[in-house]
Simulated scan of single mutants.
Amino acid sequence: MNAQGPGAGSGERGSAGVLVLGVVAVALVGIVLLSALAQATAARGLAQGAADLAALAAAGEAVRGAADPCATATAVAERNGATVVSCAVGDGPMVQVRVRVPVQPLPGWTRDATAEARAGPVGL
């Protein structure tokens, strides 16, 4: 016969609670990592948009014969939340712009999302 008293099987008592806490902790870490990935992806999109607009604006200025198309690129990039890393006016009015956008996906971890764009008249 198996006698089961009030204390029988108490060695596993509460183990389901610990398991649930572990699953919740893993889920929270996953949510934090997905949030960091979403922030990094959004910053990359912002950087690409700013680079595209800056390159187009600078190329437009270069076509008109402006003295410093890169000044226009810098102003446009800053209005779009980016900083110009490099700007080069090539053959004719062809302009290449590289920008960066700082992003902090996790507390204490800051990175730069970068993007590059090139613009100019068709056929160059």
Rank of each mutant, 00 (worst) to 15 (best):
Ala43Asp: 01
Gly22Phe: 04
Asn2Pro: 12
Gln4Ala: 12
Thr114Gly: 07
Gly45Cys: 10
Gly30Glu: 14
Ala38Asp: 00
Gln104Phe: 06
Ala43Glu: 01
Leu34Pro: 01
Val89Cys: 08
Gly123Thr: 12
Pro121Glu: 13
Met94Asp: 02
Asp91Leu: 13
Ala25Val: 10
Val18His: 02
Val24Thr: 10
Gln104Ser: 09
Gly14Ile: 02
Gly14Arg: 02
Leu21Phe: 03
Ala59Asn: 04
Leu33Gln: 07
Gln96Arg: 14
Leu33Lys: 08
Ala115Phe: 07
Gly108Phe: 00
Arg98His: 13
Ala43Met: 00
Met94Pro: 03
Val20Asp: 02
Gly92Tyr: 13
Gln96Cys: 15
Glu116Asp: 15
Pro105Thr: 09
Ala42Lys: 10
Gly11Glu: 10
Asn80His: 11
Gly49Thr: 12
Glu61Ser: 09
Gly22Trp: 03
Gly7Arg: 04
Gln96Leu: 13
Leu28Pro: 06
Gly92Thr: 15
Gln96Met: 13
Leu56Cys: 05
Leu19Pro: 00
Asn2His: 11
Gly65Asp: 15
Arg79Ser: 15
Val76Ala: 04
Gly108Asp: 04
Asn80Ile: 08
Ser15Phe: 05
Ala43Ser: 02
Gly81Ala: 11
Val103Lys: 02
Val122Cys: 06
Ala55Glu: 08
Thr41Phe: 11
Pro121Ser: 14
Ala47Met: 08
